[in-house]
Nucleic acid binder design. Structure first.
Lengths: 188, 188
DNA sequence: GTCTATACAGGGATAGAC
DNA sequence: GTCTATCCCTGTATAGAC
C-alpha cells in the first residue's frame, strides 16, 4: 500500500477548498499550507491553476458516476432511486449549510468568471439530469422524463441556495419531505 | 439638473460589475476604467472595497423596495402580484442567462468568502420573502403563507441557477408558465 | 520529486500635489 | 474632488539547486 501520490492529494485538497472558498478565492498557498508542500512543487504536477480545476472537475465527475452506480445497487425501484437524490440535501447538510451545492455554486462562479471550464462543470449537472431522466423513464414517464428530471434538479437546487443563505436546516428537511411526497403521489 | 455625483456612479458601476463578474473578481481598476476616474479617487468616497459592497447592497435593497411598491400599484390582486415576481425570470432573462440571479449569486459568493456582509445581502432575500408572504396572506393562506413564500422563492432560484448553467431560455419560460399555472390552481 | 529563490503582474490602500 | 506616484502584499508562474 503506497502513500497517495502528491498529485492526487493536490486534487483532493483543491476539490475541498474550491468548494468551501470558491475557485477564484483559493490560492496555491492555501492548498500548499494544507498539504505541507511548497508552492513551487505544484508546477511539477500541473501547468496552471486552470489545469488543477480541470482535474478537480474530472475527479468530481468520476465520483458522481460511482455514487449514481451505488444508488442503483442500493435502491431497487425508480422512485427509491430518485429519493436517494432528493435526500442529498439532508445527507450532506453539514456542508451545504455553509457552502451550498457543490455543482450549482461551481457553475455559478465559473459563469461569472467567464471561465473556459464552465462546459466541463456543466457536465456534472448533465450527469444527474440524465440519470434522473432514466429513472423517470423507468417510472413510465417517457414523454416528459427530461422535464421531470429538470424539475427535480431545479427544486433541490433552489432549496440548497436558500437553505445556504438562511442556514435553515428545518426548511431543507421540510422541502425534502415535500419532494418525496410529491414523488410518491406522482403517476400513481 | 446636476450630473450624477461620482459616489453614485461608483455604486452604480460596482453594482453592475459585482453582478456580472462577482464581488471578489471585480477590482478597483475594473470600476475605474468604466468611469474614467483614477483608482486613487475611490478613497475620497469610500474607505475600503467592503464599504463599496455595503453601499451596493443598500442601493439594491432600496431599488427592490421601489420595485415591490410598483408591483403593488400595477397589479390589483395578490395572485397578479405574485406573478409579477414569477415573471422576473423572463423580464430579466438577458442578464440571468449570463449572470444568474443577482440575489442568489451574491449570497452564494459571500457565503464562500465568509464575508461580513452576508447578513446584509440576505436581507434582499428576506425582502422578497416577506412581500410574497404578505401576498399569500391576502390570498387567504395565513397558516402557511411563509412556507409558500419560501417555495416560490426556491423554485425561481433553482430555475435561475439551472437556466444560467444551461443557458436554456425555453426551460426558463416553461417553468415560469408552470409556476403561474400552479398559482392559478392553488386555493381555488 | 521537492525545494528555495525569484520574477512579474495585479490587487488594495496611502500620501500628497493640484 | 481628482489626480499621480508609490507602497506593500499576495497571486501565479518560472529557474534552477538538491
Amino acid at each position: 500500500m503506497t502513500k497517495p501520490a502528491t498529485r492526487e492529494q493536490i486534487i483532493e485538497t483543491a476539490d475541498r477548498l474550491f468548494y468551501q472558498q470558491g475557485f477564484n478565492h483559493t490560492s496555491f498557498s492555501d492548498i500548499a499550507a494544507q498539504l505541507n508542500i511548497s508552492r513551487g512543487n505544484f508546477y511539477y504536477h500541473f501547468q496552471t491553476k486552470d489545469d488543477i480545476l480541470q482535474s478537480v472537475i474530472e475527479a468530481r465527475l468520476e465520483k458522481t458516476r460511482e455514487m449514481l452506480k451505488r444508488w442503483e445497487e442500493e435502491a431497487s425501484t425508480p422512485k427509491a432511486r430518485i429519493k436517494k437524490y432528493m435526500q442529498i440535501l439532508n445527507t450532506n447538510w453539514d456542508k451545504i449549510q455553509y457552502y451550498g451545492c457543490p455543482v450549482g455554486t461551481l457553475c455559478t462562479e465559473l459563469a461569472k468568471l467567464n471561465h473556459a471550464s464552465l462546459p466541463e462543470a456543466n457536465r456534472l449537472f448533465t450527469l444527474f439530469r440524465n440519470w434522473l431522466r432514466e429513472q423517470f423513464i423507468q417510472l413510465g414517464c417517457e414523454e416528459n422524463a427530461d422535464e421531470l428530471a429538470m424539475q427535480v434538479l431545479a427544486w433541490s437546487q433552489g432549496v440548497a441556495t436558500l437553505a445556504n443563505a438562511f442556514a435553515d436546516k428545518k426548511f431543507a428537511q421540510q422541502e425534502v419531505r415535500k419532494m418525496c411526497n410529491w414523488l410518491d403521489n406522482y403517476n400513481k
